[in-house]
Amino acid sequence: MEEAAGRVGLPCVADEVTNRMLAERPVHCELRTAPLGQKTLHAHDGFEIYGLLRGTGAYIAGDRLYPLHAGTITVIRPQVIHRPYSSDGREFHRYVLSLSEAYMAGIDALCPGVPGGIGSLLTEPGCGSSHFFLSVPQMAKAQGLLGDMERALKADAARCGELSALRSVAELLLMLADLQGQPRAAGAERSENERLLGDVLAYLVAHYQEDLHIESLLRQFPISRSRLFGMFKAHTGVTINQFLTEYRIERAKALLAGTSLPVTEVAQRSGFNDLSHFHRIFRRQAGNTPLQYRSRTAGRETSAF
């Protein structure tokens, strides 16, 4: 079996909107209050720092599933496949901070004594992401810093907004790096359900190429069918089958865009054993056939999960 998808090293069609944005400006910070617009798993250049102010949901990053609620901050390294989910589709207020790798390299130059750079302090060892549970005072400080960044970037957009925001960026990064090295505060540990769902997600990501059935999940995990279905939908807003189909289609897109493999082999490597079923699902999800998608994306760069 190939290396588990979702980890660094496998190709994935890039989030071109974010990549273009970071190519134009190395720092972007925005308060978003509209419903989630990104409906698919995706990966992009640069670091992403995702701070939730209001709402509940889940954040899938690689093979990790993180709970989202007011006071959580999630850090994603470049090229890690991810997607946030809103549990109920209601208010979902979040700050999204994007930092280009070149900008982070500039910050690393100021910290030559940090092996692996400041980014290595923000994410868990051997993982492309990390998740923080902040206390109310800590989140208030983080929200203030993110607000300062957004205002500085907007006010100084024509000149050097990135430099104006640097103090707030550095303070937030140092705050998160410090939290990463500390034990979690009381009440910040993941619940039993969240740990179980994280294990289920990791299993799905590791075995997506196989002919998975609910029975195989129930053999692996001590949980009833109804409880598993209910918890997964409650935390992610989608069913297990919807998530697995979406993940497989994104994997197929990556192979179509980044390789010259025949469509039959793309389908098999993506977990589809029935070619006609693959064509039908792919067209429904992507809006065109696999060959049309390959033609449309020919020459575009792909990134790693």
Rank of each mutant, 00 (worst) to 15 (best):
S224T: 15
S164N: 09
S135C: 07
G187M: 05
L163K: 06
L134D: 02
R225P: 03
G198M: 04
E162C: 06
G144S: 13
L196P: 00
L146F: 11
L146A: 14
A158C: 06
S224A: 14
E194T: 12
D211M: 06
Q220F: 08
D156N: 11
R184Y: 09
F232K: 14
A158P: 02
L201C: 08
L217T: 05
F221W: 11
L217K: 01
C160K: 03
L134I: 12
L166I: 02
A186R: 12
L217F: 03
L179D: 11
S216G: 07
R159D: 13
Y208W: 08
Q209L: 00
L197N: 02
G161W: 02
G147Q: 11
Q143C: 07
N193A: 12
P183A: 04
A155W: 11
K141Q: 13
E171Y: 04
K233S: 15
N193C: 07
R151V: 14
R151Y: 12
A188R: 02
S168W: 04
V200A: 03
P137A: 08
R225T: 11
C160H: 06
D156Y: 10
R190S: 00
R190Y: 01
A188V: 01
L196V: 00
R184F: 12
D156P: 00
I214K: 07
R159S: 13
S224C: 11
S135G: 12
K141M: 10
R219T: 12
A142L: 04
G198R: 01
L174R: 04
K154A: 15
D156L: 07
A157W: 01
L204T: 08
M175K: 05
Q143E: 13
C160Q: 03
G198A: 01
L153M: 14
S224P: 06
A152C: 09
L134E: 02
L218D: 05
D156K: 05
L179A: 15
G198S: 00
P183N: 02
I214A: 08
P222T: 12
S216Q: 14
Y203N: 04
L174Q: 04
G161N: 02
E194I: 09
L218E: 04
S135A: 15
D156Q: 09
E192N: 02
R184P: 08
L201Q: 06
S216W: 06
G144N: 10
R227E: 12
S168V: 06
M139G: 13
S216F: 09
G187C: 04
R159I: 08
L196Q: 03
R151L: 12
I214W: 00
A142K: 03
D148L: 14
P137L: 10
A202F: 03
I214E: 11
N193V: 13
I223H: 04
K154T: 08
